[in-house]
Design a protein around this nucleic acid. Structure first.
Lengths: 151, 151
DNA sequence: AAAGCTAGAGTTGAGTACAATTAAATTTAT
DNA sequence: ATAAATTTAATTGTACTCAACTCTAGCTTT
């Protein structure tokens, strides 16, 4: 007779653990492709927002990436030192720091196109599974925003 | 007319991004519960393996958690300093470091039982969604092992 | 207008992650 | 048996990640 009292404490019965492990494993698969454009994964997703918006402040960027200034400030300084973005305070409200895409950052977009193309072959999910996964993940992220608002 | 050339570089079209964000957001939700037993999330999943096996070497632990010695060595030293595990070299093969659950570590298991109980109410997925998510994530993790073996 | 409050970014410190390297023990090949 | 190759942890260095705190700017309230 097995004792099931502690089953809830088994790794294999966790949902968070495969999420955590999967996230890291997939980011590792990005690495060889990202190395070619000299970006880390976090820098890459920050640049994705920049390529879409050209200009954004730290708060808004943090909201889109679920990251705070503790992570973003050094990351943006790093991207600035690479010449990909510029950082300056907003004229209207000096509290806001405006991050802008530079010409060099804009040019990197062309080379970055290869990344999703090459990653596409790396995830062997059926289109249906990919959509299902996507929907569940955004459902989880969405409810998170609601519970965050409650505070 | 929209230009779709760069669509693959949009955050909203990524699968990895919600995975990465979701993983971190859910780990954040664990924090208040884990604080009560003074464990970080990584320490918690390491302890889960210990509670299941009582004894494990670093390599095997790393395989179960998808972590390497660079992460585990300091983590295990931390758990040792808390008195939850002991670390000693294997008699048969001195290369192996054997991590063992202490009496204190064993006792923590009782208090840890509250963590999954309290987390259960935090993820508002239907049972079906939870199972689907679980299966897709392990499929992704599984294929990763295959591609790792190829090297 | 001064005091208090709020918002946004930056800083600090602890704890991961992980690639690359090192060092010691063991195994394999000659 | 001994040199070479392999295995296992530990170490090093870079880069997050995040809670807690600080600082400054703008807003609010009287």
């Amino acid at each position: 007779m097995d004792d099931h009292k502690y089953d809830a404490l088994k790794i294999e019965n966790q949902l968070c653990f495969p999420l955590y492990a999967c996230s890291r494993e997939i980011i590792k698969r990005y690495k060889p492709f990202l190395d070619e454009i000299d970006l880390t994964y976090t820098q890459y997703i920050a640049m994705m927002v920049m390529w879409e918006q050209r200009e954004v402040n730290v708060k808004e960027l943090g909201k889109r990436l679920y990251l705070d200034s503790g992570t973003l400030t050094p990351l943006l300084k790093k991207l600035e030192s690479k010449g990909l973005v510029s950082r300056k305070r907003s004229r209207e409200d000096e509290r806001n720091l405006i991050v802008s895409l530079t010409e060099e950052g804009e040019q990197l977009k062309e080379r970055a196109l290869a990344v999703p193309v090459r990653m596409a072959g790396c995830l062997n999910l059926t289109p249906k599974e990919a959509v299902t996964l996507y929907e569940i993940l955004y459902k989880l992220l969405g409810e998170n925003e609601i519970s965050a608002k409650k505070e």
